[in-house]
């Protein structure tokens, strides 16, 4: 199948701004799904609210567009009901880690087999450029005209500490790596987190004078490095990308089946 077979063409062109990184995430995700040869009927995409969450409208899978921050809660329900399906949960940085912060850490702790994709553009784009928990110290936003004094989360460290069994990071510049990582994440049995650094030229870029979409993508190239590279030793400010965690630990749905089995034995 071509990637166009996986989209709802009637909703294109999509609503994202020119140069928005979220379209590149959609592009890479479709390529990963195509390469894996997954059937559209075997995929459920569950999203919350925000620019990023509009992605669920454009893919021709089973889709749920749910409450702000609560995509993982809905996805948990879908997965427990139908453990055989592949569940993709794309979220924005604010959606995943501010409004949905608790759902995020507890889904990670349970190790339920979901693929959480954090499309990190460091801003709330849809509502006008308010700072998010990933904007970072010293950055500018509509609601931080004199610089943001909040420090940001490290999504990789947070997910790892919360117990996610697959944690990775890539960017919209590194599309081939991003597609490979998404494929690994979907294949992984357990809670997978993929953080994708994505550009918002309309708000984050403009407020912080970072230039055009391509300028911002070039900055992803310059400010990131593969995990454990020599460049990182020389310049510790570089952001590492790649697969940080990939471990085989008991998955929630499989464990739940065992609970049912134990309960049935006792009742018999």
């Amino acid at each position: 199948m071509a990637i166009k077979d996986y989209i709802r063409e009637r909703f294109f062109p999509h609503l994202w701004c020119p140069g928005c990184g979220h379209g590149i995430v959609l592009n890479a995700l479709l390529r990963a799904v195509e390469r894996m040869g997954l059937k559209k009927n075997d995929i459920v995409m569950v999203s919350g609210i925000g620019c990023s969450s509009r992605i669920s409208g454009y893919v021709d899978f089973h889709t749920l567009h749910t409450l702000h921050g609560r995509a993982l809660a809905f996805a948990t329900g879908v997965k427990l009901g139908h453990p055989e399906l592949n569940i993709l949960v794309p979220m924005g940085d604010g959606d995943a880690l501010a409004i949905g912060g608790n759902h995020f850490i507890h889904a990670a702790r349970r190790n339920i087999d979901l693929t959480a994709i954090v499309m990190n553009n460091r801003i709330y784009g849809m509502t006008g450029g308010q700072y998010s928990p990933l904007s970072g110290y010293g950055m500018l936003a509509t609601t931080a005209p004199y610089q943001n004094i909040d420090h940001d989360f490290d999504v990789v460290a947070l997910s790892t500490a919360a117990g996610a069994s697959f944690v990775a990071r890539s960017t919209t510049y590194h599309v081939q790596q991003l597609t490979d990582i998404l494929e690994k994440a979907i294949n992984h049995k357990g809670f997978s987190v993929v953080e994708v650094l994505s550009q918002c030229p309309t708000y984050f870029g403009r407020k912080n004078r970072l230039g055009s979409a391509t300028d911002m993508m070039d900055q992803f190239k310059e400010t990131t490095t593969p995990i454990g590279s020599k460049a990182k030793e020389k310049d510790p400010t570089l952001i590492e990308r790649g697969v940080f965690v990939e471990k085989d630990i008991p998955e929630y749905c499989a464990e739940y089946d065992k609970v049912i089995e134990r309960a049935m034995k006792k009742g018999a």
Binding site: P13, G19, C20, I24, T172
Partner: peptide, 8 residues
């Protein structure tokens, strides 16, 4: 093709 955000 890979980097086009609009699949265009």
């Amino acid at each position: 093709e890979y980097r086009c955000p609009d699949l265009a």
